[in-house]
């Protein structure tokens, strides 16, 4: 069986901005073939039913999103550079001066996101990072005709960032949000489940929790567990609660974010489970962000929902950073929490 970290590395090497998750979906379908009953819905969500040793009267759905933040080409300038718009929330500083790949009609084209050299800017201009919609992607073309032979408006643009391990057990890559969730689900499907369980690998989270809404409608669960990556700000100069959550302190179970007030009983059960498994577990000290739970918990007549998230530094950048121990502990927590939910 592939270890979760290797699985994550493979998943992060794939490109799939919201609405263009095909590469990730194809890989997931190939990985779970023969291990689940699988359907792909009209939006492109992968809905997998995995038979357990036992059947429960509770229907539980585990969900992670396949899409990542990136950009879309909006216009081709006269000088052969491309205008882009962000797909999902990306800070201008995370985009400027970075390498990208543009998925053109004839294949993938390398590019760089740049602008005017700092030497040629006024002192006022130097203080501002340009808006993403004012940046240009340089693919090496010198005219719009040359560029149009390679790319078109609407083409997806993805960060280029090699997945790597660094320091003492840290992992860096693009798209860890939320391929980490996908990796945990693939690992659990490989290992097998005690009870019949639904797994959904969903699309379009980053543009407003859209795939999960349809997947939850289809699965019609009683209980859902969302696997995510969430903002950790355990970096200087942040102190105390402004760190939100911290790496190496275990998976994050939230009581509330900007989209969801989570099920209290599941929240408590998650912490109890972590304690009994002797793994660290933490909550977020800031009510911020949101994830697919926001769409799932209001699906049909309502779904009791919990989220298990990986604390992740530099979220929505080409260099997301998580810690290996949190990934492993999130897996242990999910597996044990799932059994407790069924056994209760």
């Amino acid at each position: 069986m592939i270890c979760v970290t290797d699985e994550l590395e493979k998943l992060c090497s794939l490109d799939g901005i919201s609405g263009d998750e095909g590469q990730v979906r194809e890989y997931i379908l190939s990985r779970i073939e023969g291990k689940a009953q699988v359907t792909v819905d009209p939006l492109g969500n992968v809905i997998a039913f995995v038979k357990g040793k036992k059947t429960s009267d509770k229907r539980v759905m585990i969900s992670a999103h396949m899409d990542e933040v990136g950009f879309v080409t909006t216009y081709i300038n006269d000088d052969g550079t491309l205008k882009i718009a962000p797909v999902g929330g990306i800070e201008p500083g995370a985009a400027f001066g970075k390498r990208v790949k543009v998925y053109g009609k004839g294949g993938c084209v390398n590019g760089v996101i740049g602008g005017r050299a700092i030497h040629n800017l006024s002192s006022a201009q130097r203080k501002e990072i340009p808006e993403i919609t004012s940046m240009c992607v340089d693919i090496g073309a010198d005219s719009s005709d040359e560029a149009k032979s390679l790319v078109s408006p609407g083409d997806s643009v993805c960060f280029v960032s090699q997945f790597c391990a660094f320091g003492d057990g840290f992992l860096k890559g693009k798209a860890i949000d939320d391929r980490a969730g996908c990796a945990i689900m693939l690992h659990l499907i490989d290992e097998g489940v005690e009870y019949d369980t639904w797994f959904t690998f969903v699309v379009q989270e980053e543009i407003g929790l859209r795939g999960s809404a349809c997947a939850a409608y289809t699965v019609e669960p009683d209980i859902a567990i969302v696997l995510e990556s969430t903002t950790a700000a355990d970096i200087p100069p942040a102190q105390g609660d402004s760190q939100v959550c911290r790496l190496q302190k275990g998976p994050v179970v939230s009581f509330m974010d900007r989209r969801t007030i989570y099920d209290k009983e599941l929240y408590r059960l998650a912490f109890e489970t972590a304690k009994d498994c002797m793994i660290p577990c933490q909550t977020k000290s800031l009510i911020a962000g949101g994830n697919d739970a926001g769409a799932i918990h209001v699906s049909r007549g309502g779904v009791r929902t919990a989220a298990i998230s990986l604390p992740c530094r530099y979220l929505h950048s080409p260099s997301c950073v998580i810690h290996r121990s949190d990934l492993e502990n999130a897996y242990i927590l999910l597996k044990n929490l799932l059994n407790r939910i069924y056994d209760k």
């Binding site: 001066g97 660094f166 320091g167 700000a233 962000g289 950048s317």
Partner: peptide, 30 residues
């Protein structure tokens, strides 16, 4: 050019050659 720094992967030439990342603030908190 400091505009390009956030979220870059870097190499540090210490006693060993180390990888690292320039810390950046994500949009949720920026």
């Amino acid at each position: 050019d400091p505009r390009v720094l956030p979220a870059q992967q870097v190499t540090v030439f210490g006693k060993e050659t180390l990888k690292g990342v320039v810390a950046s603030v994500p949009p949720h908190l920026a």
